[in-house]
Structure formats: C-alpha cells, structure tokens
Design a protein around this nucleic acid. Structure first.
Length: 649
RNA sequence: GCCACCCUAGCUCAGUCGGUAGAGCAGCUGAUUCGUAAUCAGCAGGUCGCCGGUUCGAAUCCGGCGGGUGGCUCCA
C-alpha cells in the first residue's frame, strides 16, 4: 500500500498508509479525547477524514475557541435532529453558533411551548447517549437539491440554490441528515454539557418582510463544570442588571401612567445624574466648549431642511399642528438647533473651531419592542456637542475629543474598550455623499488623530455614515458585550444643506466642517452603564448617599446628630440612622443600600470624640477624628477612587 | 411593530382539580438599649394589570387591550 508523509503539530513527521483516517492517526499518537477535529494543511476537517496525500496535521481541542465552536455547531445539529424526530413536518433552516452558544431556526406552524423545549432537551440527551456516528458525505449540488426537495425541506433547497460550488457536503447522524459545511464532532456522544436557553421568533434571513421562523437558543460546553460556570456568570450578571438595581436602590422608575420608555429619575438617581452632568459640563468648558440651552421643539421645516425628516421620520414623533398654522415636532437630534446658532452671525476663520455643547434633551419614537430600562428610551438627554471647524482643523479637533474621552474613561475606571474607525466603501459610490478628495482627507485626519493619541483601533470599511467617516468607542459591559458610548463623527453634509460659511484669511467665504461628538452618551444610557459597571457600588464621588452615621444605642444620639450635621455642613451627602435598632441590623441595611461609608458612634466614640468608619464591603477603619475622616473622604473624591469589592448581596 | 413567556400586598414570591387570597421582607405599634450583614411580639396591608366572555361560581379557563422580560427587526 502507498505510504504518505504526515507532519504532526510538534513537527514530527510520520509515515502512514494512504487512506488512513485522521482519527486513526490520532489514536496511534495517543492524542487525548478532547480533540474533536483537526486541521488538515490549515483547514478544519472532521476526524473521520481519510488522508490521501502528504500533508500537515494540527489538532483542534474542544477547549480551544475553534473546538468549542465546532462542539456548539454539532449541538445545534443534535437539537435539530431531536426536533425533527419529535415533531415531524418541522423544516430546518439555519443553525449557526453564536457567542457562548448556538441557535437553530425552524419552520413550524406552532411555536415551541416550554414543555416541548424540555422534551427536545431530553431527546437530545437520549441521542447523545446513543453515541451516533456523525459522517460526512459529498454530493453534487443538484443531487442534494433533489434529496432535500424529496424531504420537503424547502429552505434547504433555497439555500442550496445559492451555493456556487458544484459539490456540497451533508452530515448524517443516525437516520437524520443536514446540509452543512462542517466540520463536526465524530459522534453525538461527545456532546455532554448543554442546555436549551430560550425560544424566540426570528425572521427568515433576518428580513421582517419574510415569514417568522421559530428559533431555539442553546449553549454547549466541553464539561459540566464549564456549563455550570457559564450559567453562574449569567446569574451574576442578572444581579447587576441596572433595571433591578435601579429599583432596589431607588434610582429611577418608569410609570405606566406616564408611558413606556419615559423614565423618571428618583432623588437618588437624580443626584448621580447631576454629578455626572456637572462633571462633564465643567470638563468641557475647561476645554473651550460653550454650553447652551435650546428648545426641545422645532418647526417641522427645520428637520426637512436638515434631511432628518427623510431619513429619520420613522423615529420621530408626529408633528403637532396648532390651529392649522405651524407644525412643530419634538426634536430627535440637536444639531439643527446648534446650526441655527452658528448661522446667527457671520463667522471669521478666527472664530473657529467653534464648539457648541448642550445636554440636549430629545425624543425619539422607538418601537415598543426595543425599549429597555434606561438603555433604550424615548426621552433622553445627550451629552452633545458640535464642533464647527475648517478642514485643516479636523485632526487637532479629533485629537482633542479622543483625549477628552480617554480622561473621562480614566475617571470612571473604564478599561475595557476599543476604537473603531468607520470608513466609506470607495466602491459603493451611491451611499456616500461628497467628493473622494474630501473623504480621503477626512479619513486620513481621523487615522492620524487616532495614532497621535496612541490608541489601537480597527477599521471598518463601508461602516461610515453617508455624510462622513466616524470614530466609535466601543465599551464592553460586564458580560463583555460592546456598546457604542462615545463617538466622533465628521459631517460634510449638514454644512452643505444649511449653506454654512466662514470668512477665510483671503476674504473668501468657505464651508466649515462639522464634528458631531458624544462623550458620555445620553444620561440615561450612561447611568445604566454605570450602575452595571459598579454593580450599584458607586464610588464616593458619585454615590447618592456617601456616609451613613449610625448609633449603637440611643445613648449616642446627641453626638451622632452633631457628627451628621458637621458632615452635611462640610458638603457631604450624609444620612443619620439613630433608630433604636441593633447595630448589626443597621449595618446590614446600609450595606444593602451600598453606601460607601458607615460611621459607627458608640460610647467609645462619644468619649474620645471620634468616629469609627466602616467601608462598604466590611473593611473597618480605626477610630479617627472627624477631621481625619473628612480628609480621607476628600482624598477619595479628589482621586475618584473606587474601592474594589464584590457585587454584594 | 413581530414571536414566545410573564403580570397576585410597597418588594420578592406561593396559591393543587374553577369553590371569593397566603408567606417572608418592608411599613405601623409596643417591648428591648444592644459594637460592625436580620431582637421579639402584635397590627395593618389586595378591584389577583385592565375590559369582556364561559360558568351556579374565575387569581385559576377563553378572547381583547395595556405593561414587562427574552429574542427578531430597527438603531445618524
């Protein structure tokens, strides 16, 4: 028999008989059972694949990202097999892996009831126990189309029609088969630690004009421990959910009577918000921004002129018509108002860059299904600013904004974020306004700005807005999910639409560039993010209540009152708990309220004229004078220190 | 907007087969005077989201509406 040479991962070269399967090579090399697939000359393949020529092999362990992805994909297949065996007539469509799991979309008249999901999961376990061999089969595409048509799988037929290759691959396990590129695990017994996590409707091909399919979500892991750990993390994340903490800590509320997506900021939430607002306004003023106030209504013509009416109408509240005269709309953006301010007088190049900023309250009609707590609302206040500048100033202005963002993130302790530079797709000329020269200049300005600030970034071709390129800063939340928080967007379009001008050194009137930028996003979204980021444990400078003074018994009421008053006079947000309750009870409560400091006043403190501070989380400081305590607090606020601690109970 | 699920005291939740509602915490009253995550006792608290239907009888079954949750779609 013909021999071939196989290069193993460690560099060793062995000779095997042609036609030998990768699985056999693995066994002969004593490769452990965590290997669920292999790379043949760099391409992922099944262990079942037979070797026919000289090649190099690499193992894919299910503990690697690539391996777990294969495992999840195979689990999706297992689920589809279970579904089709339990519910004949259900058609399969697509079943990809996603972060931490997988889903499969089915076509079925009825949706899946919770009991049915349990049955599916139980059947999956049966099928896994049977340890069915998973085998691959290549087939001419036309033959596969015939096969799936025969099975009544119209969606697979549709998918097959769009595959350019003449040969496609099928995977069989038991009497079930699916069209799939692979690779897959070698048998269903490899799949052990999985759980179905949800059902949802999903449009075929993601288009809401198409019919709705039934999607089942699941997750799958190499070991039971990994699965349990994943589920535990989800539970942890739930405890940090800003909607839950917002209610628990009395930060905000929503009322049916007022309307969905229209949150109310309760006193404690309002304190955090006002600190946040003062912080960003002060910072921006120090950097040359001019803060303004403008109304939340405008004539509909303003938005027709800006182009928002055409592009954004679906997200705007309908116009209010007053006595058949003027039509007013709630503004969905602030830029036109700021543009009016710019146009209010003639500008010289000496005025530029002009940075107009506002905590701009605006209203957007979000579809009911997308509303969520404070992170997706219909009334919001944006940390907005529009920089009017010359094309030459773009880079330095962008650098300024990026540095501002860096500083703010440092102050809030955000470390997990990245920059995305969204560029035009030069091939897609219809989508992007203005000239190539303008775009080239703008894009290179942003690129240079990013490297000047020294941040790493990813470029996203074709992701630019139609009016200009932009930089988005993606902040990852506790679960690692990215969210655009800060953004720097160049705009050539609005200056054109409104005919903005400035008088240049040569006396000529020229067109300025606009930069839309947001740093702390909307107050609503930032609040949601901060709650989750700190798990409700706001650092001292942000905490709605900073210090709770508590007595051990009624004997210390008088001194405690004095301490409380001193702290309040000193500008601290303090509360007094002199109720006739046991200290342990008060401590438990203050910990639940996530107040950063409790100061305990007992007989000893009265005698020595001291306070005994206790940090949230349990750290007890030694008794100290009120002055020492004040200094401690002051230092902590000045440095925006956030004491690390667990999420708490 | 679409699909599924959920809505019971201020909060978290129980409520069997359709027979008119229950706990813990919080609140109030009293006792207790206590040193770093729950002192004890008593009291009070409800249009079971809303509207309609079935039924002798509905928190429970059916329909509609509202709100929420998870997805889909959308997200300048």
């Amino acid at each position: 028999m013909e021999k071939i040479q196989v290069k193993l991962p460690e560099g060793k070269i062995i000779e095997v008989a042609s036609g030998q399967k990768i699985q056999e090579v693995a066994s002969s090399q004593g490769i452990n059972s965590n290997v669920i697939a292999a790379k043949l000359d760099g391409a992922p393949v099944d262990l079942d694949r037979a070797l026919s020529r000289d090649c190099s092999l690499d193992w894919i362990s299910m503990n690697s990202p690539e391996g777990v992805d294969i495992l999840r994909h195979s689990t999706a297949h297992l689920m589809a097999q279970a579904v089709q065996s339990l519910f004949p007539g259900t058609q399969v469509t697509i079943g990809p892996t996603i972060e931490d799991g997988f889903y499969y979309d089915f076509r079925r008249e009825k949706s899946f009831a919770p009991e049915e999901i349990e049955k599916i999961e139980a059947r999956m376990r049966e099928l896994a126990t049977l340890d069915l061999k998973v085998t691959r089969e290549d087939m001419p595409r036309e033959k596969a189309i015939g096969l799936f048509r025969g099975l009544g799988e119209e969606y697979k037929v549709e998918i097959l029609r769009e595959i350019p290759e003449e040969t496609v691959s099928l995977y069989r396990q038991g009497d079930w088969l699916d069209l799939c590129r692979g690779p897959h695990v070698s048998s269903t017994g490899v799949i052990r630690a999985f759980k179905l996590t949800g059902v949802a409707g999903a449009y075929w091909r993601g288009d809401e004009k198409n019919e709705m399919l039934q999607r089942i979500y699941g997750t799958s892991w190499p070991t039971e421990e990994a699965l349990r750990e994943h589920l535990r993390l989800l539970e942890e994340a739930k405890k940090r959910d800003h909607r839950r903490l917002g209610k628990e800590l009395g930060l905000f509320m929503v009322s049916d009577a007022i309307g969905p997506g229209l949150p109310l900021w309760l006193p404690k939430g309002a304190i955090v918000r006002s600190i946040l607002e003062r912080y960003i306004v002060d910072l921006e003023r120090s950097l040359g921004y001019q803060h303004v106030y403008t109304p939340q209504l405008a004539r509909v013509e303003l938005y027709q002129r800006s182009g928002h009416w055409d592009h954004f109408k679906d997200n705007m509240y309908p116009p209010m018509l007053f006595e058949d005269k003027e039509e007013l709309v709630l503004r969905p953006m602030n830029c036109p108002h700021h543009i009016m301010m710019y146009q209010h007088e003639l500008h010289s190049y000496r005025d530029l860059p002009l940075r107009i900023a506002e905590l701009g309250t605006m209203y957007r009609y979000e579809r009911s299904g997308v509303l969520s707590g404070l992170s997706r609302v219909r009334a919001m206040t944006l940390n907005d600013a529009h920089i009017f500048c010359t094309p030459e100033q773009i880079q330095s202005e962008a650098v300024g904004v990026l540095r501002l963002i860096e500083q703010v993130y440092r102050d809030f302790g955000f470390t997990d974020y990245w920059h995305r530079l969204s560029l035009r797709d030069p091939k897609d000329r219809a989508k992007f306004v203005d000239s190539d020269a303008m775009w080239d200049n703008a894009e290179s300005c942003l690129r240079h700005a990013l490297s000047e600030v020294g941040v790493v970034y990813k470029e996203a071709l074709g992701e630019a807005a139609y009016y200009g390129p932009k930089i988005d800063v993606q902040l990852n939340d506790v679960l690692g999910h990215g969210e655009t928080v800060s953004t720097v967007q160049l705009d050539f379009y609005l200056p054109e639409r409104f005919g903005l001008e400035y008088v240049d050194t040569d006396g000529q009137r020229k067109r300025p560039v606009m930069i839309h930028r947001g740093v702390v996003s909307t107050m609503e979204r930032m609040m949601a993010f901060l709650i989750e980021h700190y798990a409700g444990n706001f650092p001292l400078w942000l905490a709605p209540v900073q210090v709770k003074v508590m007595t051990v018994t009624d004997q210390q009421k008088e001194y405690a009152q004095k301490v409380f008053e001193d702290l309040t006079r000193g500008g601290w947000r303090a509360q007094l708990d002199d109720r006739n309750e046991k200290l342990g009870y008060k401590i438990r409560q203050v910990q639940g309220e996530r107040v950063p400091y409790a100061v305990v006043i007992g007989d000893r403190e009265v005698r020595d004229q001291t306070v005994s501070p206790r940090r949230r989380g349990g750290e007890q400081l030694k008794p100290m004078s009120l002055k020492e305590f004040n200094d401690l607090l002051r230092l902590e606020v000045a440095n925006k220190i956030s004491h690390q601690q667990s999420a708490g109970s």
